[in-house]
């Protein structure tokens, strides 16, 4: 399978400069290796630090138990599922898995297909856990933009949907401009967010002006 690679730019929050990065429409061996050999040890350090400082577990990263190796293995060979990653300086900075089969719920687009973002996670050094300065910004937005563009390519007009971990509610609502359809009783009461065609166009204008 040919992997599509797009050049993107990420702000380096520590240096104030922007860095060239790549968006890839696959999660193959290298991103999973990075997750195992770089993300996992970094996350373990963060958790040790949070525990030592007595930070309540409710404030620990809520995706800390995600196993990307298992997540990609369970959909291997299934054409409904796609993976994306962002790399910068040769290291994976963010991962996303999407499902192309769910249907929209919001009244104006109910029953129409969308790209459902099942999992999206940025590398632990790109989060501000425990007051740290994130390394690269814009990784989550770049992945959401990839989901929107995939939705357009598939004829879904930019519609996307997702259930958000509580720590990310503000990102999807305020940064991505998605519609908050409230807690979902059928999905651990996580809030369900959806992006309409109009919102998708507005998001892309903001995120990835051509």
């Amino acid at each position: 399978m040919t992997v599509q690679v797009s050049e993107i730019s990420l702000p380096n929050r520590q240096s104030g400069q922007s860095a060239q990065a790549e968006l890839r429409d696959a999660i193959d061996e290298q991103p999973l290796l990075d997750w195992m050999t770089r993300w996992q040890p970094f996350t373990a350090d963060v958790l040790r630090d949070l525990a030592a400082r007595g930070v309540p577990k409710s404030q620990w990263p809520q995706s800390r138990h995600w196993n990307w190796g298992a997540k990609m293995a369970e959909v291997s060979g299934l054409i409904a599922f796609r993976g994306f990653c962002v790399t910068c300086n040769g290291v994976t900075q963010g991962l996303m898995r999407v499902d192309l089969t769910p249907l929209a719920r919001e009244d104006t687009q109910a029953g129409k297909p969308l790209v459902y973002v099942e999992y999206l996670e940025v590398a632990p050094w790109n989060r501000g856990d425990g007051g740290r300065t994130p390394h690269y910004g814009g990784v989550g937005s770049a992945l959401i933009a990839a989901a929107v563009k995939l939705s357009i390519d598939e004829g879904f007009r930019g519609r996307i949907g997702l259930h958000s971990l509580p720590q990310a509610d503000g990102f999807y609502r305020d940064t991505c401009g998605m519609m908050d359809l409230g807690p979902d009783d059928g999905y651990q009461r996580l809030r369900y967010f959806e992006m309409t065609e109009t919102q998708a166009q507005a998001f892309l204008r903001e995120e990835a002006p051509e």
Partner: peptide
């Protein structure tokens, strides 16, 4: 018409869903 998709897109969706269900 109902799903606001091209006919090709409908068939591609059908294939995705069928393969997922079968698996």
């Amino acid at each position: 018409a109902k799903k606001d998709l091209t006919k090709t897109a409908v068939l591609r969706q059908a294939l995705r869903i069928y393969q997922t269900l079968d698996a």
